[in-house]
Write a protein that binds this DNA or RNA. Sequence first.
DNA 1: TTTGATCTTGAAATTCATTTTCACATTACA
DNA 2: TGTAATGTGAAAATGAATTTCAAGATCAAA
Lengths: 149, 149
Amino acid sequence: MKALLKDIEEEILSAGGKRSRSRAAVMEQFFRTRNHTTVEELTRAVRTRFPRIGAVTVYRTLKLLARMGYATELDFGDGARRYESSLSSHHDHLVCTVCGAVIEFENKDIEKLQDLVTLRHGFRPAAHRLEIFGRCRKCAANGAEGRNE
Amino acid sequence: MKALLKDIEEEILSAGGKRSRSRAAVMEQFFRTRNHTTVEELTRAVRTRFPRIGAVTVYRTLKLLARMGYATELDFGDGARRYESSLSSHHDHLVCTVCGAVIEFENKDIEKLQDLVTLRHGFRPAAHRLEIFGRCRKCAANGAEGRNE
DNA sequence: TTTGATCTTGAAATTCATTTTCACATTACA
DNA sequence: TGTAATGTGAAAATGAATTTCAAGATCAAA
Ligand SMILES: [Mn+2]
Ligand SMILES: [Mn+2]
Ligand SMILES: [Zn+2]
Ligand SMILES: [Zn+2]
């Protein structure tokens, strides 16, 4: 984690960037915070310790991390872009439309079938996303209704 | 197609709505137009014949069709919501990040594996989306680069 | 038909996430 | 240090989508 931040800083430096305390604070908070966070959430979290850091810097830092491959941009269709660290291996998501819970899963068989599909179409895949929306176990039991019902 | 529009009108009526020429024009254009269209595109198309129809009506009509189950909202991550008729059977998409081409595919095996995944998590799926981004055959041959490279 | 309650429309205003701008601060490096 | 480049944060701008509202259309009951 300490090493990770150091690596990223080095990479920024060798790309002509400079170090910055604000950015370091945002990055540290990001890798520490729960996954699938929004800019707004992360900004609030960072500000408890560094009240002067603006949301713009959070936007910029997350975009930078995404460009560098250390973060992945997500969109669960609720109006706010979400980010997750790309250190954990690739996975897809079950999104509960009632309580917002996000369950991660990984399924090699699905991925293999995807490769077959793209191959069949002469398509060179670069990325994919699979999101399944519905009710999590708890919310299904409650009989609660989601945001689209 | 004529019958479809009639059905939708009836359904709107019996739900307490009223007929409207503008909405009828938008709906007809929508089911006639190419798939995966944006509000902006559809508005332009409708306006060639009914110049007084505003974009707001197109927004409203598409939202209505989506709510009624006749249209599906899509998001290919390029900033504009897209819609497609939900009359054709369920399918997922390969999206070329170079030329914007969209290839539809359907894979029952993938869907079955998805059901296994949700079952395993006690998750009640209501909808899902699977999008694979990359280069279509033509753009891959060209060696062209996409919007994220 | 006329009436009047209700729905629909389109322009303008608003919202909201994100991006851009810009003056000032910070950093790297000689 | 000096200085050229990058980074910051507040405010302004952007842009898609939604809301508001006054005027227009539709429908069922008289
Ligand atoms: Mn995740
Ligand atoms: Mn499609
Ligand atoms: Zn839930
Ligand atoms: Zn292409």
